[in-house]
Amino acid sequence: MAQVIRTEGVAPVLDWVMRFVSKCATQLNISASAEFIETLSEDIIDVYKYDSLEDIAECLKKGRQGRYGINYGKLNMVVIQEWMAKHLEEKYRAREAAHENSKHEESTMDVREEYIRLIDESADAKEVEANRSGIELLKRVDKVIKRKLK
């Protein structure tokens, strides 16, 4: 959000966050004045200025859906901080899992590449051996033919 605030100013960011908060309050059937929504939105921007608007929107969405526990008709900064802590923990775990997955895929690719290299070397060795065997066979056939021709 900090980058957006620097480039676009605080007004559009405040407008977006106010929309998110208003929708959340409506869905939770909480009466909230415009002043309350604006103040809560300003607090959210102040506390979470280094997080993205997508994080704020996703947090409020999951919170109103009850994914972070039962909401007892409250929507304030304490509730949002609890939700945001859970949201950021989920996000961190997802990134951690993706990172571990990519490390596993990289090591799997390394093993596959090494396996293919070894198979290629083995095939090359077998081909060379087969060529040697073929040459030896041709030499023996040649000797037999020469003996019969004598």
Rank of each mutant, 00 (worst) to 15 (best):
K61C: 02
K61Y: 12
K62P: 02
G63T: 14
R64T: 07
R64M: 08
R64I: 00
Q65H: 10
Q65P: 00
Q65Y: 06
Q65T: 06
G66I: 10
G66S: 04
G66P: 06
R67F: 09
Y68G: 08
G69C: 04
G69S: 05
G69Y: 01
I70Q: 08
I70E: 05
I70P: 00
N71Q: 12
N71H: 09
N71T: 11
Y72W: 10
G73E: 03
G73M: 08
K74D: 04
K74P: 00
K74M: 04
K74R: 09
L75F: 03
N76V: 02
N76R: 01
M77T: 06
M77F: 12
M77N: 06
M77I: 15
V78Y: 04
V78S: 03
V78P: 00
V79H: 02
V79R: 04
I80F: 08
I80V: 15
Q81Y: 00
Q81W: 02
Q81A: 10
E82W: 00
E82D: 14
E82I: 03
W83M: 11
W83R: 07
W83F: 03
W83Q: 08
M84D: 03
M84T: 04
A85C: 01
A85T: 13
A85I: 03
A85V: 00
A85R: 11
K86F: 04
K86V: 00
L88M: 15
E89G: 00
E90D: 15
E90C: 07
K91S: 08
Y92W: 13
Y92E: 15
R93I: 12
A94G: 00
R95H: 14
R95F: 13
E96F: 14
A97T: 09
A98D: 03
A98C: 02
E100Y: 14
E100V: 06
N101H: 12
N101C: 05
N101Y: 02
N101P: 00
N101M: 08
S102T: 12
S102K: 13
S102D: 07
K103T: 05
H104D: 12
E105Q: 14
E105H: 03
